[in-house]
Amino acid sequence: MAIELADIRFHYPSRAEHTVLNVPSWSLKTGTQAFVYGPSGGGKSTLLGLLSGLLSPNSGQVRVLGQCLDTLSNRQRDQFRAANIGYVFQQFNLMPYLNAIDNVLLATQFSQSNNRGGKENEVKVLFNALNIPENEWQIPCRDLSVGQQQRVAIARALINKPKLLIADEPTSSLDQANSDAFMKLLMPMAADNNMTLLFVSHDHSLSSYFTSVESLGDFNQVEGINNAS
């Protein structure tokens, strides 16, 4: 199993009475390309925060790639995340003042694997595979188009060869053409590298790319709790 959640309850410290997540049980098989949709504010980002180890549940157990996150120290969790999980967000994926190559190399900084020289070649291979033209490699990322920035973000997410790739509304800031192009690059990349892909969006139209489609509301049972209190 790539992801296993058991008896998860989560609320933010500032709003103790408002439970955001209540997941009795949810799991994702290794190698699945899963699409989870739900409305904005439905707890999607919170779920991803728990999976990345940046948030800890108030109760319950989070296992990612067989590793129980609650048993890790903060430092170990940071290392685990750097080495095993790739991320693509809707925006702010990149340091705006670094160029594309440095942005991707920055992600290798925190994973255990080193060897800079080799990494730089891997970055170039990835950029070529993602059709990022060479003349855009050395300019600050803020000067790239949004579509191009998202491609660099894919490269950034893939550089450490993570086993789990998490995409949080990565196409929301793209127009239809760019959005399609993005999906057509992402899906085979994930498949070729044998990654488990968890793609979260409120846009149901993207579900056609995926084999497994779920609604967050199906396994996040918060309705009853918040109404009762």
Binding site: L54, D78, F92, N93, M95, Q109
Partner: peptide, 14 residues
């Protein structure tokens, strides 16, 4: 704020 969040996501310790 966004830079800091991004750095944390890619695994940088505080």
């Amino acid at each position: 704020r966004h830079e800091i969040q991004l750095l944390r996501i890619i695994g940088s310790p505080p």
